[in-house]
Simulated scan of single mutants.
Amino acid sequence: MSATRYRRFLKLCEEWPMDEFKKGRDLGTFLRQRVALAFREGENTQISDPEKCDQMYESLARINSNVYRERFPRVMDTSFTGVTVEECKVLLSGSMQQMQQMDEEKKGLWKTLIQRFSSKAPEEAAEKASEK
Rank of each mutant, 00 (worst) to 15 (best):
Y57M: 01
I47C: 03
R32N: 05
Q33H: 15
Q33T: 07
E124V: 02
A126V: 07
K11H: 11
E15M: 08
P17L: 00
Q33L: 15
K106Y: 06
R5G: 01
D54Y: 08
A126S: 05
K120S: 09
T29L: 02
D49W: 04
A3Y: 15
M102E: 01
R25I: 13
A36C: 14
R62N: 14
D77L: 04
R8G: 00
W110V: 03
G82W: 02
N64R: 11
P17C: 01
E123V: 14
K128T: 03
E87M: 13
E105G: 02
S118I: 02
R25E: 13
A36T: 14
E70H: 11
C88T: 14
D103Y: 06
W110A: 01
K107S: 00
S119Y: 11
K11R: 15
F21W: 00
Q46M: 06
E105Y: 12
K132F: 07
E58G: 09
P17H: 01
L27H: 10
S119F: 11
K52N: 08
Q33W: 04
N64Y: 09
M1L: 14
S79P: 07
M99P: 00
F39P: 00
R71I: 13
M102T: 06
S130W: 10
K128D: 07
K128I: 12
E124R: 00
E43G: 03
V85M: 08
K111W: 12
K89D: 08
R25D: 05
V75T: 15
A125P: 03
V75H: 05
E58F: 00
V67Y: 15
Q33C: 12
K89R: 15
P50N: 03
R40D: 07
Y57V: 09
F39Y: 15
G42I: 12
A121M: 02
F72V: 05
A38K: 11
D77K: 15
R25P: 01
E15L: 13
N64D: 07
S95F: 04
F9S: 00
N64F: 03
S2T: 13
Q98C: 11
L31P: 01
D19C: 03
Q100C: 10
T112Q: 12
T78F: 08
T112M: 08
D49T: 05
R74A: 15
T29F: 05
A3V: 15
S95C: 05
A61W: 02
I63T: 08
E123F: 06
K111S: 11
L92E: 04
P73S: 03
T45E: 10
R116I: 02
R25H: 14
W16K: 01
P73R: 02
T45C: 06
A121W: 02
M99I: 12
Q46D: 03
S48Y: 07
F117M: 10
E124M: 01
K52S: 11
S119L: 15
E86R: 15
F9W: 13
K52R: 12
A126F: 06
E86W: 14
Y57R: 09
R69Y: 09
K132Y: 07
K107G: 04
Q97K: 12
Y68R: 11
M56T: 10
L109S: 05
A129H: 06
R8E: 06
C88G: 08
R74P: 10
E43P: 05
F21D: 10
R69S: 11
L31A: 04
A129F: 07
T78I: 15
P50W: 11
K107D: 01
P50Q: 02
D26W: 02
A129K: 03
R69L: 12
